[in-house]
Design a binder for these strands. Sequence first.
DNA 1: TTATTCTGCGTACAATTGCGCACCGATTAG
DNA 2: CTAATCGGTGCGCAATTGTACGCAGAATAA
Lengths: 209, 209
Amino acid sequence: MNNRQERKLLTRQSLMNAALQWVEEGQHISSLSIREVAKRAGVVPTAFYRHFSDVDDLTLNLVDELSKVLRQLMREVRQNRNDLQALIRDSIVRYCDYVANQRVFFVFLAQSMTGGTPLIRQAIRSELQYFANELATDLRQLGLLPNLDQGMLENLAQLTISTVANSTMDLLDLPEGNAGARQQFEKRLRRHLQLIFLGAAHWQATVTG
Amino acid sequence: MNNRQERKLLTRQSLMNAALQWVEEGQHISSLSIREVAKRAGVVPTAFYRHFSDVDDLTLNLVDELSKVLRQLMREVRQNRNDLQALIRDSIVRYCDYVANQRVFFVFLAQSMTGGTPLIRQAIRSELQYFANELATDLRQLGLLPNLDQGMLENLAQLTISTVANSTMDLLDLPEGNAGARQQFEKRLRRHLQLIFLGAAHWQATVTG
DNA sequence: TTATTCTGCGTACAATTGCGCACCGATTAG
DNA sequence: CTAATCGGTGCGCAATTGTACGCAGAATAA
């Protein structure tokens, strides 16, 4: 047979996919049993333990795995532009498209952001912080917002990322195939980001609290 | 014996408290079984069905129940002020205090916001929208931000509410008893809200996208 | 080659699960 | 006072759960 590591990685992927499938059916990952996920992966229950110690462990690895993919997405969404308005608009459109095409993915992450163990939540928080840092770097390089010091730039980036991240569940819950609702959502999110960046553009030492 | 309805309401409360206790122990509400919650409530399993059809039903009622309490809190946090900066600062402090004193409460709501059934998520969304509307009304009455039309005022309120709501999980995950981290959190949230309201103050027809 | 190390399989068992049923005793309605 | 109502009890049963144990056969190491 093939390389043993490959085989192992394959069933590992099967288990992870089975877990995502569970989430896709509207279930919460925490209500997934070892037997159930093993059955869906086409594996005997005890085989599960060759890969993960329990469901929480699987979940944590799933977060790590999906984080890699997310970073790839973020690299694609990043784009050099000088027009902040167009940047906001295009980024939103791209992001929404991606979310729509990778529903399970984001449902799972949204669930885990508030539902997992503290360890899992921490992992997702780190990931969001990573994105915020990348955004802050981009914004600095673009040279817009020269009035912001490093600290405020980071605050701005954090707020931006968390605003987008936390709007994701709303996006996921939109009735599918309803283009109107989708456009309305995008417009609202755009307004929110515009508000934030407008505030950033006017930030001065005036606010000292 | 006492009034029958009172007795019934009492065990109903017991069941709800038992469910919250489950969450308090770090478990997710979706992994709660009827037998478990009944045991904790000091009731036989089948008695559960006299009150709820299943755990989802209990969860939904729990959301409704807690929403009432939340509205009460919000009324307390509301306060007439003319100084926007002080309003932001004080509201944050009050909110954080409340969250710290009612942990389970908010952990449960945060969980359900992303983890529950679509119905439950919808219920929480409605609640947040209610708060946003109240905030919008308040802002209008305060007469600050006369430059915003009704639509943008609602956008501002939505963004504010969701920013606070979504920062709650971060607050809950702060190491307890660490006043420094707590202050740092409050400062960050304050900066975020300041950014938003600064943007609102400068909002004009300039942005038309 | 031989020996070892894996990975998945099958069985097994006690604990827990949802839920149906009959029952009982107190409250309430007539 | 009588009878219906209704919330809680107790039992039972089939299904599902976590996890321990030994086994087999392939990949790897010697």
